[in-house]
């Protein structure tokens, strides 16, 4: 594959769209019935940062991701990834969301060998090309790692 084709595989239109019009960006106050937890994650090698708040509601055992709100600075990959995370995980039960998280993690750590499941990952399949760029995998995973950390804390 040429460098130009690799570049197009990295910067899928879906990623650039999410970068320009991010879903769910901004920190929001949790509603009265919601529990929440904030985390701040950084990518020390490049300086990308995210403050992410998970809003959880429902009874223990059947909790849902009511919202994921975040402030972030970083590259197109890290910003688009947070946007896709918001789109994919909000509304799901935490168990369902953890499953999606696992699929996304497997895709990103697969070095380009994992065939993504569009049923599960939806727009997230656009990140398949990122997995071939080891230096950018951390960009794509920044918000996802923050989400997992915050969710574990919010669950208590």
């Amino acid at each position: 594959m040429s460098a130009a084709q690799d570049l197009d595989a990295l910067y899928q239109e879906i990623i650039l769209d999410h970068y320009k019009n991010p879903h769910g960006k901004g920190l929001r106050e949790p509603a009265a019935a919601q529990r929440s937890a904030d985390v701040h994650h950084v990518n020390p090698t490049c300086g990308d940062e995210i403050t992410l708040r998970v809003h959880v509601e429902g009874e223990p055992g059947s909790e849902r991701v009511a919202d994921v709100s975040y402030d972030a600075v970083g590259c197109s990959i890290s910003q688009a990834s947070a946007s896709v995370l918001h789109e994919l995980l909000v509304g799901k039960t935490i168990d369902e969301a953890m499953n999606v998280h696992g699929e996304f993690l497997a895709l990103m750590q697969g070095k380009g060998t994992v065939e993504p499941d569009e049923e599960v990952l939806e727009d997230g399949i656009a990140f398949a090309g990122v997995a071939k760029f080891p230096a950018r995998v951390k960009c794509a995973l920044l918000s996802w790692m923050a989400w997992k950390d915050a969710t574990v804390q919010a669950r208590g």
Binding site: A3, Y11, C46
Partner: peptide, 29 residues
């Protein structure tokens, strides 16, 4: 309109090697 990592990535695809990031000078940034 383009984040430095994305600049560096596109430049790299043209064979141009630069550095992107905080260059170990976060306070200066």
């Amino acid at each position: 309109g383009v984040h430095p990592h994305d600049v560096a990535q596109v430049l790299d695809s043209r064979g141009v090697a630069v550095r992107a990031g905080h260059h170990c000078a976060k306070p200066a940034h």
